[in-house]
Design a protein around this nucleic acid. Structure first.
Length: 284
DNA sequence: AGGATAGCCTGCGGGC
DNA sequence: TGCCCGCAGGCTATCC
């Protein structure tokens, strides 16, 4: 479920809490979640964390080895899938049961003082970790097929590039190659706010509707980031806390309940292979 | 081109 | 109480 706002919340927390720390050691408990080199060094061991980036729903942790003959960059990509979590843990003690904690990074300060742990937990294992020798390699391989980040400027123009498509607008919004970061929750919320039915074909939308929808996507993503994301079940911030945006959902998860604007019963059905909720009165 | 389906995987809630 | 089933949806692959 982590979509752009949830992943951005985690990114911001980690930027504050792990940048500048060194990875003393890495424990891989379930090797199958790591794609690429399983070498501890590929998983940043011995390297100092420099940056935490995000593109769409994916995170990148960039680290560098200051001791190498020449500086040696490393990058890992973390994709949380449906139930993945990246948790900042204290040195000892844990936030949960310890179940499904597949990878653990032991952190220390540059003076070698213990500085807690970072844990990748993912019960359903739809997520994973990809290792790369550099950020550039990550960008030109794993992120190559992704569209521009949904929160970056120019969303309206990007969507208009697909104006001739016969696909439904919901399928276009969910397509990470069109725009990266939108999932089922924020697609439905943005379409409701824009007053556009998810079943409309892209080619039948007016330019004004595309502009309005792009604006609504931006607004709902911003609001959700401010609320630190939507926690329905599994999503937690890096500190293990819940987000708060779920209480602001207008349509997601509200099928057959009254529309909060017009009180008509919300419709639900499958659009683009996803459970979809909309108001046939408010959305045209 | 793009829709449909299956597969990956666990946890939960409803129904019996 | 307990078991089975359906569902949740991130993504990919394959087929039509």
């Amino acid at each position: 479920m982590p979509e752009l706002p949830e992943v951005e919340t985690i990114r911001r927390d980690l930027e504050k809490s792990i940048v500048g720390l060194r990875v003393r050691d890495v424990h891989v408990r379930r090797a199958s979640v790591v794609v690429g080199s399983q070498d501890p060094i590929a998983l940043l061991a011995g390297h100092t964390i420099e940056r935490v980036l995000r593109h769409g729903k994916q995170l990148a942790v960039i680290a560098n080895s200051a001791h190498a003959p020449r500086s040696e960059e490393r990058a890992i990509c973390v994709h949380l899938g449906m139930t993945g979590q990246l948790l900042r843990m204290p040195q000892d003690g844990r936030l949960g049961s310890g179940e499904h904690e597949h990878v653990e990074w032991m952190l220390e300060t540059t003076r070698s003082a213990p500085a807690g742990r970072l844990v990748f937990r993912d019960p359903r294992r739809f997520g994973g970790i990809w290792t790369f020798s550099t950020l550039d390699e990550l960008r030109t391989t794993r992120w190559e097929g992704l569209g521009p980040d949904a929160a970056s400027p120019g969303l309206s123009e990007r969507l208009l590039e697909f104006k001739g498509s016969r696909r439904t607008i919901k399928a276009v919004l969910l397509d990470q190659a069109v725009v990266a970061g939108i999932g089922n929750i924020y697609a439905d919320e943005a379409l409701f706010n824009a007053g556009v039915r998810p079943t409309r074909r892209m080619e039948r939308l007016t330019v004004a509707e595309v502009h309005r929808l792009a604006k609504c996507v931006c607004v709902v993503l911003e609001q959700a980031i401010r609320a630190r994301g939507s926690t329905l079940r599994d999503y937690r911030t890096a500190n293990g806390e819940s987000g708060a945006f779920q209480v602001a959902h207008q349509v997601y998860g509200r099928g057959k309940l009254p529309c909060l604007r017009c009180r008509c019963l919300l419709r639900s059905g499958v659009v683009a292979q996803r459970t979809t909720v909309w108001c046939s009165e408010c959305q045209r």
